[in-house]
């Protein structure tokens, strides 16, 4: 029983990380109708930058702020420099362009830092306590709490504020939104910047558990996309719950079949889900460019 609790706790924590990252993907997708393969790399930039500045004596807290700022600027810049220039009638071009940015950002960071793996500060991952028979680290608890607060906050902003109304108006029809005086471009770039911050938070949390290199966020991003595909990118709660569910499923697969089972379990899931779900769930009508 304790073992199952431990597995579930680990899965929920992992799922909350996926959900936090997916929140950024969802908001960007709904406002810009773009999926960015470079999104994980934006988070990687935050973590690797933070690690690099700690090596020259900068305190960890300040290093994290610097890393997060880098991610915010980078994701905003991606929108301004690349995404805005993609013609709306070029289906799939956003994927190709962001794949290029994915490679470019990784290569730039390898040049600026290096190609090796590095240990990131633990950020409470090594301080544990027992709750209901499961060992929970401070880092785990912080991730779950942050996910609950941020997701709830995002939902409140989207559903109860004028900013949320503007965002939903942009998501529904950018041209009409612009005609009512909403600065669609600024709103989109702001959304990308906020998503960059979310990617930075997740990347730092992941970095505190695994070694950091230029590609360590790739598998996280793929799983985030998988959760988005399963839950539906044009919704709010279903994909986020799917993200938490995916974390639990992955954790259960690893606990049942061993550490190597995580990868095939997740990838088999997406193949089966997208192959067998009713056709109306996989039509791309609302995801023209993606």
């Amino acid at each position: 029983m304790d073992g199952l609790t431990q597995v579930l706790a680990g899965g929920v924590t992992q799922g909350c990380l996926y959900a936090l990252m997916l929140l950024g993907v969802l908001v960007v997708f709904q406002v810009s109708k773009v999926m960015s393969f470079a999104y994980g790399q934006v988070g990687m930039v935050a973590a690797l930058t933070a690690w690099a500045v700690t090596t020259v004596g900068v305190p960890v807290a300040l290093a994290l702020v610097i890393g997060a700022a880098a991610a915010v600027l980078l994701n905003g810049a991606i929108d301004v420099v690349a995404i805005r220039r993609i013609p709306t009638d070029r289906v799939g071009l956003d994927l190709v362009v962001t794949l290029g940015l994915f490679l470019l950002i990784a290569a730039v960071m390898q040049q600026l830092v290096d190609s090796n793996s590095h240990s990131f500060p633990a950020l409470g991952a090594d301080t544990q306590t027992t709750v209901l028979g499961a060992r929970i680290s401070v880092n785990d608890a912080a991730v779950v709490a942050l996910a609950v607060v941020v997701v709830t906050g995002a939902w409140l902003v989207l559903s109860r504020t004028s900013l949320g109304t503007n965002l939903r108006a942009c998501a529904e029809d950018a041209d009409i939104a612009a005609s009512t005086g909403i600065d669609v471009r600024a709103l989109r770039t702001g959304t990308w910047a906020v998503a960059g911050l979310l990617a930075a938070v997740v990347a730092v949390a992941v970095a505190s558990r695994v070694a950091v290199d230029a590609f360590y966020m790739t598998s996280v991003l793929v799983k985030v996309f998988i959760a988005g595909m399963i839950g539906g990118l044009d919704r709010f709660w279903p994909p986020l719950l799917a993200a938490v569910g995916l974390g639990v499923y992955e954790s259960l697969a690893v606990a049942t079949f061993g550490a190597d089972a995580g990868v095939p379990a997740v990838f088999l899931l997406i193949i089966v889900v997208l192959s067998v779900v009713p056709k109306r769930f996989v039509l791309d009508t609302s995801e023209a460019r993606a």
Binding site: M35, G92, V222, F225, I226, L268, L274, S275, D284, R289
Partner: peptide, 11 residues
């Protein structure tokens, strides 16, 4: 098509 196809082929 699009992202879903890319994702499944990636998987």
């Amino acid at each position: 098509s699009g992202l879903r196809l890319a994702l499944v082929t990636l998987a």
